[in-house]
Design a protein around this nucleic acid. Structure first.
Lengths: 249, 249
DNA sequence: TAAATAGTGTCTCTAAGACATTATGTG
DNA sequence: CACATAATGTCTTAGAGACACTATTTA
């Protein structure tokens, strides 16, 4: 940035916001948190939580602040997603939005009643209200695509589960996010176990049939290169272009 | 973004710029374009080209404009990289920079003498001036990481090569970007050919020994899922964390 | 003992990696 | 022919996928 010439005063400045797509697991299904707008534009439509970036505030911190305001949660997995800056995305003024997504553990999803907005609600990603306000449908698609593609080669899924979980639960989480296809139990267990990121917690738990063993995620084992890759769950490229390709705005 | 309450007037706004890391191939080596700053801050240091986003201008378009101003090129591969927004990244004021990277074909790298800045120069990525101005070292690292990781599963490399090229040239490009390791010729050719993205241009070309066959990239073949994946060229995770992980600013 | 769910074992086949061999140009 | 580089072929092996089988609980 910043050329050498011109007096360093940008003419008019766009506003900059941070939007955070917050994922969690509820009743074994992936959900996102949305707010209902009270005033125009897009009154009564659902929107991704977000707000202005303060002048002396890092972007990540702004995202964390939003997250904390809406959910009361800290220490959450947070990752910058993409920056959306179409000039007309907010009819009132030029707003550039740096989008983030967050993964919230299933066992701590107490939503603090937001002081800002009357209606805050978790929606299953399979049953999102349509359309969302602004360009939030697009942001949501980006977030889901990113989540899906990173599931393959990272341990992101563990960030959604409670601290202690069973392999069937983990498998179901993967299936939830990757789409409808059912993963092969044997192959799934084999891969996960070979990755060596699980710590057995010995206990058991009821579930109708044979109890499943409980595990904890071994975050410490940094030596592993977490590469889970399931061809069987391969995500077919979406119509408009690949997940992280080419140019968009 | 945008809450329901508060009067919709953000207090003070950060400036927003677009920075573009421009890659090309020169003398078989990967190069990036840098500008030398004439005035403080960071006077006489090299910087990634960039500039302010106009109030009614999409981000991508701002990036293309910068690219065109510096290189005179259009129709170039361009991809948004990441948004950098640390409050102190520019000592003069709060500047949020949306970084892009561009891949310029090797056969059209005539740099237009920029009207803005006296010194514009291509640097081999293996011999970059250090340190760059602002947080541009970080941006550069991001760009290289992204390029490397996407080489594995996309056809990005073709965007750097001239329209007609040989397999040895393609292989060398991969090697250049992925690091020092030499890829196995047999395995490389096999994978590329099996991907079915090459169109033979029959001709030959001198090179000391047996002439290599010429090929053209078959961009049209949209049916393929381009997945090149070389374990032999595996990129070892950098010290500070994986390419696209977790939180940074 | 039937139903339900958890967990393990095994076979096949693809494809990655290593490496040898052949092909085609020049001096 | 020697040399240089291009291109193809072959063997081995890891691992993904399919699927069968065993284990452990409740009704």
């Amino acid at each position: 940035m910043v050329q050498t010439k011109q007096s360093f005063e940008p003419p008019d400045r766009p506003a900059v916001t941070v939007d955070v797509v917050i994922f969690t697991l509820r009743e074994r299904e992936v959900h996102v948190l949305l707010l209902k707008r009270r005033y125009p534009p897009f009154a009564d439509q659902w929107a991704i939580p977000g707000g202005f970036v303060k002048l002396d505030e890092p972007l990540d911190q702004a995202a964390r602040r939003e997250l904390e305001e809406e959910t009361g949660l800290q220490d959450v997995y947070l990752e910058q997603l993409y920056t959306f800056g179409a000039p007309d995305r907010d009819p009132r003024m030029r707003v550039i939005s740096v989008a983030y997504f967050a993964l919230v553990r299933a066992d701590v999803q107490q939503i603090r009643g937001s002081h800002e907005s009357s209606e805050v609600q978790w929606f299953a990603v399979k049953a999102l209200p349509q359309p969302l306000a602004f360009d939030h449908d697009q942001i949501m698609r980006f977030a889901l695509d990113r989540l899906r593609s990173k599931l393959e080669y990272t341990t992101l899924a563990f960030q959604l589960l409670p601290e202690v979980f069973t392999l069937p639960e983990l498998k179901q989480t993967y299936e939830q996010i990757l789409g409808e296809k059912e993963l092969d139990r044997g192959n799934f267990y084999r891969k996960i176990k070979e990755a060596g990121v699980l710590e057995s917690v010995g206990k058991q738990r009821e579930s109708g049939g044979r109890p499943a063993a409980l595990y904890r995620f071994q975050a410490n084992r940094r030596d592993n290169d977490f590469v889970f890759r399931w061809r069987e769950a391969r995500i077919e490229p979406r119509g408009e272009g690949a997940v992280d390709d080419a140019v968009r705005d």
